[in-house]
Design a binder for these strands. Structure first.
Lengths: 127, 127
DNA sequence: TGACAGCTACGAAGTCCTTCGTAGATAATG
DNA sequence: CATTATCTACGAAGGACTTCGTAGCTGTCA
């Protein structure tokens, strides 16, 4: 079984993770710039330091400038978060979740088709 | 457009809301009992008081024992939370969310069939 | 009536999260 | 070499959340 993130990232942490997923390993400055928050440089730094302790990111401690990298992939984190939501508010029922996801957002025909394709793929693989 | 909860309930608040949804209007003691936390009576009371300020619940101020009731339905709150997740971690893509929901939890054949039925219902209603 | 049980209100502690300011080290620049 | 820019580390403030203890009120019951 693949390991899982131990705790949910907070909102601020998630925002940073998204940048790391999009850009790959990055320095504090790069993250801050990408987020349009270069003025909040030390805030981002502090968050990344905390995230390092929490093992949400790891860093390459090059002498001068550290490079941070997400420990967990985007997909695994998404899975973690969706599972959490599923259990916390949907009683573990995936179909209830899907109902609300579709109701909440006017999902395009293209999206719907894609989801249907997914379901068909699952058809064989489930018992 | 129907109104929406303004902020996400916290985890503790959500746990209480679930009891209120399940039981309907309830007293503090009933909620505490249902949660198996009768010893934490004043904690639950305090939370309900705060939730009243936040307009997550409303209360009937009967002279002796207040009765609390969720302001938002379960469905609307679920929608709110799923929308939040959708935007915060799935870039607004419902299909990505569904992928991970299905991957995260071994969904039963019955569940899958139900979801498929849902999609078919949507078929007509979308452009 | 007096003790007790059950209720609300409230304050305060402890924790976590986020932000920012400052200090110290080191590289870059003139 | 001196100044400036850039980096890390760190502490502290402020806010939100959760928990708990205490106080005060009001019924109940022997």
């Amino acid at each position: 079984m693949a390991p899982r993130p131990s705790k949910k990232p907070t909102d601020a942490e998630l925002a940073i993770l998204r940048v790391l997923w999009a850009r790959g390993p990055s320095t504090v400055r790069e993250v801050a710039r990408e987020m349009g928050r270069e003025n909040a440089y030390t805030t981002i730094l502090k968050l990344l330091q905390i995230m390092t302790e929490k093992r949400l990111v790891r860093r390459d401690e090059s002498p001068r400038t550290h490079v941070y990298e997400a420990v967990w992939t985007e997909g695994r984190t998404q899975q973690h978060l969706v599972t959490d939501l599923l259990e916390r508010v949907f009683d573990g029922s995936a179909s209830k979740l899907v109902v609300q996801a579709l109701a909440a957002k006017k999902t395009s025909r293209k999206e719907l088709a894609e989801i249907r394709k997914l379901l068909d793929q699952q058809r064989g693989g489930r018992r």
